[in-house]
């Protein structure tokens, strides 16, 4: 009895020690991570609202008299404004294209039986191997001959293609989880296949559509390589490639203005990351190929 008691106690004690060690390690890890990941973002935001002099002074917290929103006036610059418009058009175009194609193809893979279906689906995965730089070199001359260089359409096509393997697989797997009976009951009630798809299936794919939209957004909004090569004209290019050109140019801008532009580019991803992270994670779960 007493042996068992002392054994139990010693186990409990050591458990308590180990538990404390674990807690300390976990908290320390969390702090380190927050600093590592958060500091560059914080520094960007902090310097986006500083005056030029404030930026030079440094200091972890901006001095009150050095705080200003005037850097955001950079958006009224016609070049920067044009980048923003181009980025928005291309991103919206890619998101819509990806949603439409992934819905139709995902539905087809989920609901129709056809020969070589699995082989085709696996072939789609090769899309993960599409490297923007490898593709954009030959695409440059092809687009040039087709007149798609510097066109929104050309960039939207290229970016949609590299979003496909993920979005179609996600939609396929997601639609498989929707019971076919809901759709069948619409057919029984007289709905055509298309009507039932629109009325019954599409509304139920909302989580997958959100995940697909965010991933397509991330690809289109952040793309540098395709935009840099396929949109050589400064008026046609999107924000990432434009910002890079500004950085290397003789443009008279301070770091504060670059931070302000960076912050504007970061805000949409930040909002999505905060509010829609569960959808993103869901997507990654299915992406776990």
């Amino acid at each position: 009895m007493s042996d068992a008691d002392s054994l139990g106690r010693s186990v409990r004690l050591s458990f308590r020690h180990r538990n404390r060690l674990y807690r300390v390690g976990l908290s320390a890890s969390a702090v380190v991570l927050v600093v590592l990941l958060g500091f560059p973002l914080y520094w960007m935001a902090a310097n986006a609202v500083r005056t030029r002099l404030g930026v030079q002074d440094g200091g972890l917290l901006p001095a009150p008299d050095a705080v200003t929103l005037e850097q955001f006036a950079v958006i009224t610059d016609p070049t920067v404004g044009q980048y923003l418009i181009n980025s928005t058009i291309v991103t919206v175009g890619v998101v819509l294209t990806v949603l439409a194609i992934s819905l139709v193809s995902g539905y087809g893979l989920a609901r129709f039986e056809f020969p070589h279906k699995i082989a085709v689906a696996r072939f789609l995965l090769l899309g993960y191997m599409f490297s923007p730089i490898v593709l954009s070199i030959p695409l440059y001359l092809i687009w040039d001959r087709l007149g798609l260089l510097n066109s929104y359409l050309g960039l939207i096509l290229a970016l949609s293609a590299i979003s496909m393997p993920f979005s179609v697989w996600l939609m396929w797997k997601y639609i498989q989880t929707i019971p076919e009976s809901a759709e069948a009951s619409a057919w029984v009630a007289g709905a055509s296949r298309w009507r039932a798809f629109v009325d019954i299936v599409i509304p139920q794919t909302k989580p997958a559509m959100i995940a697909n939209a965010i991933f397509a957004f991330a690809i289109a909004w952040g793309d540098f390589t395709f935009a840099y090569v396929l949109m050589p004209n400064n008026d046609a290019t999107t924000f990432p490639a434009g910002l890079f050109r500004l950085l290397g140019s003789q443009w008279d801008a301070s770091w504060a203005e670059f931070m302000a532009m960076s912050l504007m580019l970061t805000l949409p991803p930040l909002v999505f990351a905060f509010f829609l992270q569960s959808y993103l994670l869901q997507g990654f779960k299915i992406r776990a190929l």
Binding site: S181, A182, A184, S185, P203
Partner: peptide, 8 residues
């Protein structure tokens, strides 16, 4: 249907 299949 067995699973009722109401439109959620």
């Amino acid at each position: 249907f067995q699973d009722i299949a109401l439109y959620p």
